[in-house]
Design a protein around this nucleic acid. Structure first.
Length: 303
DNA sequence: TCGCCATAGGCGATTCGTTG
DNA sequence: CAACGAATCGCCTATGGCGA
């Protein structure tokens, strides 16, 4: 990203509980319309369907066209900065949520690659990350979900949570599409493409006890340079990344096989099972055996 | 942007002891 | 015997500084 260019901002919301749906609808404007000026206490999700709405939030100007999704933040002034000559239509939804935060693009990218590590540190860290403003190519699913939301919100549904869960699902869909687009964009870029190939290579060769030097040699990086670049891009060191991959794999093997701890350690490229146990305890706070005993029965029939 | 050097701290191997 | 922890120690990695 170039300096000075507007950094993409993302709204990050934990979804261990659903967002709170307040109201929603399908807005169709008259001709020569612009959004009234207001400052409210809830979030607003806007999904463009037809025409162009010109909405300004604080100092930022947005054009909401079909395929665009804009999130208006609570307690920020927003208004139409230009009159739409043709008719405009969009879906809208007012909602509340707890513990939301605004993150920038580099944070988004980092969390893309290390969700497992994040989750293990914070125990339960499931969230959606939706750009404040973005365009989507696959609008069908979003529109279908929004239709369902409106249906549930306006019918005599047996619980108002229905709309909240559907709204949460819409946010998950937006997150999913954003992630897919983002990964594709990274792959298209040459240096990032090489980097993603490297991550794949690490994933495939994780059982071969690979070192930083091995990776550097394979991809023609200077080991020192690779160390820095990796930390800068991903946010954790290369060795920590490799170890977290191994432990993630170990957890699966503990639950889905009856290999001994020693066998699992060897399969993961550890030459010493003692060290494997040490590392596992450090990252998961329990020993491999405790992990297996605690979760074995609940996963027995997972195929 | 990339590579080299120095170095502190962490990694990984080894040994030994304990428990069930 | 399998699983795990503690202590120890050499080596590797991360990182700041410097320079091409």
């Amino acid at each position: 990203m170039k300096r000075g260019e507007n950094q993409m901002k993302f709204l990050k919301i934990p979804i261990d509980k659903p967002l709170t749906h307040v109201s929603s609808g399908h807005f169709v404007s008259p001709i020569n319309w612009s959004h009234s000026k207001r400052n409210i206490d809830s979030f607003v999700l806007i999904v463009g369907l037809q025409g162009t709405a010109y909405i300004q939030q604080d100092k930022e100007k947005y054009e909401v066209k079909p395929g665009n999704v804009l999130i208006l933040l609570p307690y920020t002034t927003h208004f139409g900065y230009e009159i739409s000559k043709e008719s405009v239509s969009y879906y809208w939804c007012h909602f509340y949520c707890k513990n939301s935060s605004i993150v920038d693009e580099s944070t988004f990218t980092k969390e893309l690659f290390v969700p497992k590590i994040e989750a293990s540190i914070h125990n339960d860290c499931n969230y959606v990350m939706v750009p404040i403003y973005s365009s989507y190519t696959n609008t069908d699913r979003i529109n279908i979900l929004f239709n369902q939301l409106l249906h549930v919100a306006y019918s005599d549904y047996y619980t108002s949570y229905g709309a909240s869960y559907l709204l949460t699902l819409i946010m998950m869909e937006l997150t999913q599409q954003t992630i897919s687009d983002h990964i594709q964009k990274l792959k298209d870029d040459e240096t990032n493409g090489k980097f993603i190939k490297m991550l794949e290579w690490i994933r495939i060769n994780i059982e071969n006890n690979i070192s930083v030097c091995d990776i550097a040699r394979e991809f023609n990086y200077n080991p020192d340079y690779l160390s820095r670049m990796f930390k800068q891009k991903i946010g954790i060191s290369l060795i920590k990344y490799i170890n977290s991959l191994k432990i993630t794999k170990a957890k699966k093997m503990l639950l889905c096989s009856d290999n001994s701890i020693k066998e699992i350690a060897y399969k993961l490229g550890f030459t010493d099972e003692k060290y494997f146990m040490k590392l596992f305890k450090k990252m998961e706070n329990i020993t491999p055996t405790q992990y297996r005993n605690a979760f074995f029965y609940t996963h027995m029939n997972n195929h």
